[in-house]
């Protein structure tokens, strides 16, 4: 249950904290790529287990940004 980078870029802002509950469609990370803000939303509801990539880190397309535990 992961939120992955839709394109390569740098993590600009992480909008959630471990333990936080997120809803489907909620923005959890904003990437910066091609000098554009790329909001990344959760595709399902859940609880944040881990922030895998911190602010300023480079990520390839498809890499895990945030790990979610599915909502019960």
């Amino acid at each position: 249950m992961d939120v992955r980078a839709p394109m390569s870029g740098t993590v600009w802002k992480v909008l959630v904290r471990p333990g936080e509950r997120v809803e489907t469609g909620q923005e959890v990370v904003i990437l910066e790529s091609m000098k554009m803000e790329i909001p990344v939303a959760a595709e399902f509801a859940g609880t944040v287990e881990a922030i895998v990539k911190g602010e300023g880190e480079y990520v390839d397309e498809g890499e895990v940004l945030v790990r979610l535990a599915p909502a019960p």
């Binding site: 394109m7 790529s33 091609m34 554009m36 790329i38």
Partner: peptide, 8 residues
């Protein structure tokens, strides 16, 4: 479409 991948 700037809403997806910045329109890249």
């Amino acid at each position: 479409q700037p809403a997806v991948k910045g329109g890249t």
